[in-house]
């Protein structure tokens, strides 16, 4: 396992260097920091989503769910819309980036927590129902947000539109630092949970018998998931609206691949493996798409396609087994 992890880390290193150096033109003093910032943001998003997905799959005891599939990314535009609604376009524009980030993160994490708790209550342990309810709730949130946008002032509506579809261009250094701190804290806490997560994998009764009642661990993990996915989304915007933040299927592809490359029940291996593979997929994918193929299509669209297909395969294979 250790050698495999080292190998993936090597691949990641190559991807990162290539991302920094391929097709380098123009003043280096500008291009390198610009690319570095984007690289760091990509890595942060990958780390946050991969770890969050591992946690989510363990606490829901299945291998095909991701937090974003449960409607998390739909919350982003909702939070933005509500903020513009409450503050007006000018008030909104006057917010400093760190304030905006903080409010965004708080809104996302808070609403996300409510969403997950409601979902887990509704589904009562039935995985397929959880999944389906999540997907439909995502649709509901998205259309409700759309409705809300139509109801606000048309001028303000323009602001939300441009914000929520803004493609990511320049990374704000301060934001990057705040997001890194939040994600870093989340990952560190998740790492501390690793042995307890192993125990939870044995099933609820066995975990209780071993002194790890699932309810508390569920709560802690959900908090971390909301913190990490919220930070990633607030930094980059959800992939679904053109940012490179959470997409429904990114985490799914990454964790499924991590389980394939490093088959293990130990979260002490699975977490780093998912982190590394997530970074390879996002940075390597961006490299291939942007630098090598020069496609105009955002990476997200491709990931969603592959991810959706992976999801179907996993779902149908699970049935066959």
């Amino acid at each position: 396992m250790g050698r495999r992890l080292a190998l993936i880390a090597g691949v990641l290193g190559v991807c990162a260097c290539a991302y920094m150096l391929v097709g380098l033109t123009g003043p280096l003093g500008f291009v390198l920091p610009y690319r570095g910032g984007k690289l760091a943001a990509l890595a942060l998003v990958a780390v946050a989503l991969s770890v969050a997905t591992v946690l989510f799959q363990t606490i829901t005891a299945n291998r095909i769910l991701t937090p974003s599939l449960m409607g998390f990314d739909a919350l982003y535009v909702l939070v933005l819309t509500v903020m513009v609604q409450a503050l007006g376009a000018s008030g909104f524009a006057a917010l400093s980036p760190p304030t905006l980030f903080a409010v965004n993160l708080a809104g996302l994490a808070g609403l996300g927590l409510v969403l997950f708790v409601v979902l887990m209550r509704l589904a009562k342990g039935d995985m397929v129902r959880l999944c389906l309810t999540g997907v439909v709730l995502g649709l509901l949130i998205r259309s409700a947000t759309h409705l809300l946008q139509r109801l606000i002032d048309p001028g303000d509506y323009q602001v939300v539109q441009s914000l929520s579809v803004a493609r990511f261009t320049q990374v704000d250094g301060t934001l990057l630092a705040i997001a890194a701190a939040a994600v870093g804290a989340g990952v560190a806490l998740a790492w501390r949970l690793r042995h307890r997560l192993d125990v939870l994998d044995l099933g609820e009764a066995a975990a209780t018998g071993l002194g790890e009642p699932p309810a508390r661990l569920h709560r802690q993990a959900l908090l971390l998931i909301c913190l990490m996915v919220g930070s990633a989304t607030a930094l980059a915007g959800p992939m679904a609206s053109g940012g490179f933040g959470p997409s429904s299927f990114f985490g799914l592809v990454v964790v499924a691949f991590a389980r394939l490359v490093t088959p293990t029940h130990r979260h002490a291996v699975l977490i780093p493996s998912a982190v590394l593979i997530g970074a390879v997929v996002l940075i390597g994918g961006q490299l291939v798409l942007e630098r090598l193929l020069s496609l105009s299509t955002p990476l997200i669209v491709v990931i969603e396609l592959i991810g959706g297909a992976t999801f179907l395969i996993l779902l149908l294979k699970r049935r066959a087994a």
Partner: peptide
């Protein structure tokens, strides 16, 4: 957990 151990009915582990 250091006093009592339990084997629940139909124990099944999804992890491999």
């Amino acid at each position: 957990a250091r006093v009592v151990a339990v084997l629940a009915q139909g124990a099944h582990v999804s992890a491999r």
